[in-house]
Amino acid sequence: MFDRSSVRLLLDRYRLIRLRQTIDREVDDFVVDVEADPERASLVDDPFVSMEDARDRLERLETTLLEQSDRRAVFLTVYTEMTAETIREIDAGEFIDSAWMERYLVRFAEYYRRAFRNYERGAIAEVPDPWIVAFGAAIRGDALALQDAFLGINAHINYDLALTLSDIGLDPDRSDKYVDHARINGILHRLVSVQQELLSELYAPGLSRVGDQFGELDDMVVALSLHTARKKAWQVAVVRSDARWTPVEKSTEWLLSRTATGGAYLLLSPETSPATMQVLRKIEADQLDLLSYAQDFHNRAETVL
């Protein structure tokens, strides 16, 4: 059923703020030519066939990108850890419906794989707009590492997640499936906290020189609103699942794309002062080694998961 209450649910303040960010803006500036690479292509050409296959190939893609100093690795450093931890919890029987969670994990990873593959191939028309912004900003290298990570998280949660849930189905036992869906929040929160901790240590000297605190960069975290975004992804999936009507599916997919793209623009325009952003970019240029950062992240993640 699709009625006025569904419209109010979909067009709330959270989404309207993000929709406004997309007015008179296109993603063309984030389309970057990518040199073909057989190694990367071999890892994303074929669909994932299991959660272990998704984990292993995502980890190998992260390694490849790190070796190539490709900043698209920054998101994958978080995502591979989240994927691995989710698999560990599935295997340990921590979820109510383990079989559903396995489908959830594989289908979710498939949305990332297809977006990455199509961007690599230059098939931009097949890449969702929020992923065009995330990939393009990372390849251009003019965003902070924190922004690179959050742009990927934004695209994956605010666009891919509702579609994933719709694809795998919410029924039967919808309430149990929501409990399993919500359990992921804790994993993601702990990993984002690790990332903030590492980057605050990197940025701290520069922030002290300009008299700012890392807390000002938390505007990005607020803009991302992970818990809220995952809850709203479920709400959209409910609307799509209950309506089972092509016009609703098309309109909600458009809405997901626009609001996720608006979220990306918010992440790229934090309220942090230009002087602070300039200092942080210089710190990253001089001190951020992607390989070392990734290793530190994975090591520290082991202590919180």
Results as ranks from 00 to 15, higher is better:
residue 154 N to T: 13
residue 143 A to H: 13
residue 124 I to T: 15
residue 84 A to M: 00
residue 156 H to D: 04
residue 91 D to Q: 14
residue 171 D to C: 01
residue 162 A to S: 13
residue 167 D to E: 15
residue 90 I to T: 05
residue 74 V to D: 09
residue 94 E to D: 12
residue 175 S to V: 09
residue 127 V to R: 04
residue 88 R to D: 15
residue 165 L to F: 04
residue 93 G to R: 11
residue 146 L to A: 10
residue 154 N to Y: 06
residue 157 I to V: 14
residue 116 F to T: 03
residue 86 T to H: 12
residue 104 Y to R: 10
residue 142 D to G: 04
residue 153 I to A: 12
residue 167 D to R: 14
residue 86 T to M: 15
residue 126 E to H: 06
residue 120 E to N: 09
residue 135 F to C: 00
residue 107 R to C: 09
residue 150 F to E: 11
residue 173 D to F: 03
residue 174 R to V: 13
residue 83 T to V: 15
residue 168 I to K: 07
residue 76 L to R: 14
residue 92 A to R: 14
residue 90 I to S: 03
residue 138 A to S: 11
residue 103 R to S: 12
residue 145 A to R: 02
residue 121 R to Q: 12
residue 109 A to K: 01
residue 143 A to I: 07
residue 79 Y to T: 01
residue 140 R to W: 06
residue 86 T to R: 10
residue 91 D to S: 12
residue 167 D to S: 15
residue 127 V to W: 03
residue 90 I to M: 13
residue 118 N to H: 12
residue 81 E to F: 07
residue 98 S to C: 00
residue 113 R to A: 01
residue 164 T to E: 11
residue 118 N to I: 02
residue 79 Y to M: 12
residue 136 G to N: 06
residue 97 D to T: 00
residue 157 I to P: 00
residue 122 G to Y: 08
residue 117 R to V: 05
residue 100 W to F: 11
residue 145 A to T: 11
residue 101 M to H: 01
residue 168 I to C: 05
residue 92 A to D: 14
residue 104 Y to M: 11
residue 165 L to P: 02
residue 94 E to A: 14
residue 174 R to N: 03
residue 150 F to I: 08
residue 117 R to P: 01
residue 112 Y to P: 00
residue 165 L to A: 02
residue 122 G to W: 07
residue 151 L to T: 08
residue 78 V to L: 15
residue 172 P to K: 12
residue 93 G to W: 14
residue 162 A to K: 04
residue 118 N to F: 08
residue 99 A to G: 06
residue 125 A to L: 13
residue 137 A to P: 11
residue 81 E to Y: 08
residue 129 D to K: 10
residue 144 L to V: 13
residue 118 N to P: 00
residue 164 T to S: 09
residue 87 I to S: 02
residue 140 R to G: 08
residue 113 R to F: 04
residue 154 N to H: 09
residue 109 A to V: 02
residue 101 M to S: 02
residue 127 V to D: 07
residue 93 G to I: 06
residue 103 R to E: 13
residue 101 M to P: 00
residue 101 M to W: 07
residue 156 H to R: 00
residue 113 R to K: 12
residue 171 D to Q: 10
residue 175 S to H: 07
residue 165 L to C: 03
residue 142 D to S: 14
residue 86 T to N: 12
residue 158 N to A: 15
residue 151 L to I: 02
residue 170 L to G: 05
residue 92 A to S: 13
residue 95 F to D: 01
residue 137 A to I: 07
residue 155 A to K: 03
residue 117 R to N: 01
residue 124 I to G: 04
residue 116 F to D: 05
residue 80 T to E: 07
residue 165 L to W: 02
residue 168 I to A: 01
residue 129 D to I: 00
residue 121 R to V: 04
residue 74 V to Y: 10
residue 149 A to Q: 14
residue 107 R to D: 13
residue 89 E to W: 11
residue 74 V to S: 03
residue 107 R to I: 08
residue 98 S to I: 02
residue 155 A to F: 05
residue 77 T to V: 15
residue 143 A to N: 05
